[in-house]
Amino acid sequence: MMHFIVFILISIVLLGCSLGVVLSKNIIHAALSLLIALLSVSGIYLVLLTEFLAVVQLLIYGGAIVIVILFALMLTRNDDYPRISNHKLWPIAGVIAISVMVTLSAAYYKTYPIQPDMIQEATVQELGTSLFTTWAIPFELASLVLLVALIGAIVIARSDKGDN
């Protein structure tokens, strides 16, 4: 029961802050709401007894990705900074999003019965064993993807040789 109450509270924070990300007029407020939303996703992982993913979420999303997004906001600021405008057709976007939500919810409602399920704890040791035996080749490929993305980001973002 305690688990369930904590889950509901974290879910409310998560959904509220993600609404703040997509609805806020101030772009900095949107970025800070994104930070809170990502931290509460880490809380959801803790409710699901997955400590390793919770820490990874805190480090990579809360630590790295939000900082990179804030840097990009700082480097691309222009006149409509504090009050951004949405696309003209935003009601259609709302209709599409709500219909996707309703459809997927109905599909899950048909699939799963509502019953309290047991949660299986995933320890770091078990995750590591699985990662380096079954998933060893995708793990190495992920490092290659990160290397390519690193080099690509440097090549794309650096200024041309001519202009100083």
Partner: peptide, 9 residues
């Protein structure tokens, strides 16, 4: 769904 709305709008 919230993320999808953000991407589209």
């Amino acid at each position: 769904g919230i993320g999808l709305y953000g991407v589209l709008s």
